[in-house]
């Protein structure tokens, strides 16, 4: 499970956590008449074998559900469209996915309530970091520089591209040398050791890296910051059973009050769960809309 814990990075880690906590919290509620199905968007979980992730999530779902006579199923999706279809056909009770993929697939009126995981003392969001001694003080200064971002990170891609369009009205590919790293911490270290000029990383990872080495905080500076409640959410659709919604909400909020819930929280290095609503996901829709506006405007202007 340690490998699994490492694998669940950034948004991916929240996906598994949210589903498991729902089951752990619901264990104290009334037995469900029908199985509770959690739909995971698998590409959101990084650096791990998908087969291992499926097996682990299913095992843990069953393990947690068994003592409470609750049947649970962890259903994995490689395609958000399929997940969207199942959710809209009420075959999935809870959709667990990175925030940007969630907002790209669902419209606000299709989702109702959900949860996100938080750590104490750590904000969630994105940070563009540079070395203090590099002399870079504005986004524009990144022109011609070596910039890193996380691979397969739709949020980072959209955020960075939005910034490039907003600041320079040109795509990032023309503004600086963009490279991708598999993990945020790699990007942080490369900037720290001067192997890259800047990197877009999650605030949580930056905070964790600074905890591991305070020299990072002393040597690096955040050039640009974008905060959000969380980078991943577990949300129910408007078509989900209202009885289930209350059950899931109540269970999630009681997760930190049960032994097994605390174990799962510790496993995913999470302190507590917070209730999430449409407003919490709204910044991502805003960002996405801005991104669409800027890129479509550019495309239209090209036409």
């Amino acid at each position: 499970m340690i490998a699994f814990g490492h694998a669940l990075r950034r948004a991916g880690s929240w996906l598994g956590l949210l589903g498991l906590l729902v089951l752990a919290g619901q264990a104290r509620a009334e037995p469900a008449m029908t199985p509770l199905i959690l739909g995971f968007y698998l590409p959101g979980i990084r650096d791990a074998n998908p087969t291992d992730i499926r097996a682990s999530l299913q095992l843990w779902v069953e393990e947690i559900a068994k003592p409470y006579r609750l049947q649970g199923e962890a259903r994995m999706y490689d395609d958000m469209r399929v997940l969207y279809r199942d959710a809209m056909q009420n075959r999935v009770d809870l959709v667990i996915a990175p925030a940007m993929e969630l907002t790209e697939t669902f419209r606000p009126e299709e989702l109702t309530q959900g949860f996100s995981a938080r750590r104490r003392g750590s904000d969630e969001g994105l940070a563009l970091i540079v070395q203090k001694s590099s002399g870079l003080s504005q986004f524009r200064d990144l022109r011609g520089k070596h910039v890193l971002r996380l691979s397969n990170d739709r949020l980072g891609q959209i955020f960075l591209e939005t910034q490039c369009q907003r600041e320079t009205a040109s795509p990032c590919s023309k503004l600086f040398n963009l490279a991708e790293e598999k993990r945020d911490v790699q990007s942080i270290h490369r900037v720290f050791f001067g192997q890259a000029d800047a990197a877009l990383v999650s605030l949580g990872t930056l905070h964790a890296a600074s905890e591991l080495n305070p020299q990072i905080g002393a040597r690096l500076r955040v050039l640009l910051e974008w905060k959000a409640q969380s980078l991943a959410f577990g949300m129910m659709t408007v078509r989900s059973d209202p009885a289930y919604r209350d059950l899931l909400l109540r269970s999630a909020m009681q997760a930190s009050q049960t032994v097994r819930g605390v174990q799962i929280l510790e496993l995913f290095k999470t302190d507590y769960m917070v209730r999430a609503g449409i407003s919490d996901v709204q910044p991502f829709w805003n960002l996405y809309h801005e991104y669409q506006d800027l890129t479509h405007r550019k495309a239209a202007s090209r036409k």
């Binding site: 490492h6 993990r183 790699q186 270290h189 490369r190 720290f192 050791f193 192997q195 591991l212 080495n213």
Partner: peptide, 14 residues
């Protein structure tokens, strides 16, 4: 590539 050295050793130590 000191970043890799650090990450790898952190992973080894963990």
């Amino acid at each position: 590539d000191y970043g890799f050295i650090v990450e790898h050793n952190l992973q080894v130590l963990q």
